Simulated scan of single mutants.
Amino acid sequence: MALPPAHPERQLKHRRSIDVAVYACGHGLWEVEARLVDVKTRDYPLAGGIRQAGDPVHDMTLRLVIDEQMNILAAGAHTEWMPYPGHCNAYGDAYGRLVGLNLMHRFRQGVKERLGGIQGCTHLTEMAQVLPTAVVQAFAGEVLDTQENGQAQTDQQPFQIDRCHALRSDGEAVRQFYPRWYRPDTSADGTSSPLTPQTSK
């Protein structure tokens, strides 16, 4: 589906930027740093005064230390710009509660349970939801085997298969690029059968 056409007279009023960077630290450790910045194009009245156009309404950073199994070993957050100084940033060590979660196993549910609602900052908690797929991208080809390298004699499929609509195991992309793992849909109701590796022709 194509994008709706952009209105020729539209005017930018607000921009939210989310930047996620993933760093290799050696010895199997990685840092995940996510930053959220909200900026308005006009002077903006806040309870504590006017925020000038171009100055952030929010500028906050969440940092995790993870291992190569995507377990969170350390976590914390810092808020530099906020609408209510002394209040928005009074979450203390709340984001340390992310320690012990795994980015690939019930992570989003764990974030909601530990930091949802008044337990944390809405924006930091919401931003945490994008981290699993960002880390998968960082790990692809380095930690995660996405090309079956060295897997010819195993029954372990490449990580990304059956994790999105394009790479479903009964789809054309898998048939073309990962033929060993292609599994045509032969069920009457369209439900795929358990995955078994296919022999390439």
Score class of each variant (00 low, 15 high):
Met127Phe: 00
Met82Cys: 12
Gly96Leu: 05
His78Leu: 12
Gln157Ala: 15
Pro4Arg: 11
Asp43His: 02
Asn89Asp: 15
Ala21Trp: 03
Trp81Phe: 14
Leu12Met: 10
Gln160Val: 10
Leu98Ile: 03
Leu144Trp: 06
Pro179Gln: 07
Gly54Trp: 04
Tyr23Leu: 14
Ala140His: 02
His105Asp: 15
Val22Gln: 02
Val22Trp: 01
Ala6Pro: 03
Glu68Arg: 14
Glu80Tyr: 02
Asp59Phe: 05
His87Arg: 13
Gly150Pro: 06
Ala34Trp: 02
Leu73Met: 14
Val143Pro: 00
Met82Tyr: 04
Cys164Asn: 12
Arg106Cys: 04
Ala47Asp: 10
Gln11Lys: 13
Gln11Val: 15
Ala94Lys: 05
Val130Lys: 02
Glu113Lys: 12
Arg51Phe: 01
Leu131Gln: 02
Ala138Phe: 00
Pro179Lys: 04
Gly48Asn: 14
Gln119Trp: 00
Thr191Gly: 08
Asp155Pro: 00
Asp55Ile: 11
Arg114Ser: 06
Gln151Thr: 15
Ile50Asp: 02
Trp81Thr: 02
Tyr23Asn: 14
Phe177Met: 09
Phe177Lys: 00
Leu131His: 02
Gln109Ile: 15
Pro83Leu: 05
Thr191Arg: 15
Leu36Thr: 12
Arg106Asp: 14
Lys112Gln: 11
Glu68Gln: 15
His123Leu: 11
Gly49Lys: 04
Gln52Pro: 01
Lys112Tyr: 05
Asn102Met: 07
Glu126Phe: 03
Cys121Asp: 01
Gly86Leu: 07
Leu115Gln: 02
